[in-house]
């Protein structure tokens, strides 16, 4: 991503360069959003609803989303189910193994903030956003497949609003 990172900072200074950059951004965002591959990461009850959403009646494949078993090949991690302290370390490892750009969707009450296991529970992490950054929260216990599809569409909307500048750094100072 080296050239793409530095391109907007230099190209925008040319008159008319902004049009080039926004078109490039549009192309990159469209290609990333239309083919989000999600990591098969079902922990608990919401995993069955995720599997049902990927099956025949509510289909994920029509949005271009297909499940991958390995985090190295996935863009989107759908944390479906309760996160316990024992599993939290492994979730962080999996999140680190995914390649940029990556997105996280917290599905269900347990992943958002602990859900029904908030009170009187010693082993549950109250919300997965305590260890990894989350883009979209979907409440419900478990959320209906339609809610999950809307959550996936919201991730797509978020991707369409991205700019290359978010991934780039500032222009490095000229070494005198």
């Amino acid at each position: 991503m080296g050239i793409i990172e530095k391109a907007p900072l230099y190209v925008e200074k040319i008159p008319g360069g902004g049009i080039v950059i926004t078109s490039a951004e549009g192309l990159l965002n469209w290609s990333r959003a239309s083919s989000l591959w999600y990591l098969l990461f079902g922990l608990a009850c919401c995993a069955i609803e995720m599997m049902a959403t990927g099956a025949s009646r509510y289909d994920f494949d029509r949005l271009g989303m297909f499940f991958r078993a390995s985090p190295r090949q996935a863009d989107l991690m759908m944390v479906c189910g309760t996160v316990t302290h024992k599993m939290a370390k492994r979730i962080k490892i999996l999140y680190d193994q995914m390649a940029e750009p990556k997105y996280v969707l917290a599905m269900g009450g347990c992943a958002c903030d602990g859900g029904p296991f908030y009170y009187d529970c010693y082993s549950v992490l109250k919300g997965v956003d305590k260890i990894i950054p989350v883009d979209v929260y979907i409440p419900g216990c478990p959320p209906r497949p339609e809610s999950l599809l809307q959550g996936a569409l919201k991730v797509r909307e978020k991707i369409y609003r991205e700019k290359i500048k978010d991934f780039a750094g500032d222009i490095p100072p000229k070494q005198a």
Binding site: T84, H85, K86, Y118, Y119, D120, C121, Y122, S123, L125, K126
Partner: peptide
């Protein structure tokens, strides 16, 4: 989990970290 050293949770009157 492996580095649990907060006692025996199912005993009556136990409290520990992250127990609300």
């Amino acid at each position: 989990y492996d580095d649990w050293n907060y006692g025996y949770p199912m005993r009556k009157g136990w409290t520990g970290p992250d127990f609300i």
